[in-house]
């Protein structure tokens, strides 16, 4: 099963996506950009799941199910998040997260 499949390149790719996503979340000022960062993080973990499931026969089914559920959850999360961003836009006429500064202290 796992012959000829090296695990580490996939894990490195997953880690790379995760890092890109975290940097994206931390630096983007546009709320949509932050959400794209979140999606990158989720996909980084998904690559991990799929790679582990390919590498480890015990984890084969579980890893795939993990990945499927994460895809569904990511879709749900994106829908809710975009609705909230739209609501924010309706009230503030911008999606810049730095303009969310009325609540502090």
């Amino acid at each position: 099963m796992s012959e000829g499949v090296a695990l580490y390149p996939y894990l490195v790719l997953g880690a790379l996506l995760f890092t890109c996503g975290v940097i994206c979340m931390a630096t983007k000022r546009n709320a949509i950009g932050v959400l794209i960062g979140v999606e990158l993080v989720l996909n980084g973990s998904n690559i991990n799941f799929v790679a582990f499931s390919q590498y480890n026969p015990d984890f084969q089914v579980e890893g795939m199910i993990f990945a499927l559920f994460v895809i569904v959850m990511a879709a749900g999360e994106a829908a809710v998040a975009l609705a909230i961003v739209l609501n924010f836009y309706n009230n503030h006429s911008t999606v810049d997260v730095d303009s969310a500064e009325e609540l502090k202290g």
Binding site: A31, G37, V41, V85, N87, L103
Partner: peptide
């Protein structure tokens, strides 16, 4: 304020 609270919650929470 409510929309700002939701935005902050969803951004931090999903992160």
């Amino acid at each position: 304020q409510s929309s700002e609270a939701a935005l902050k919650y969803v951004v931090y929470g999903s992160g």
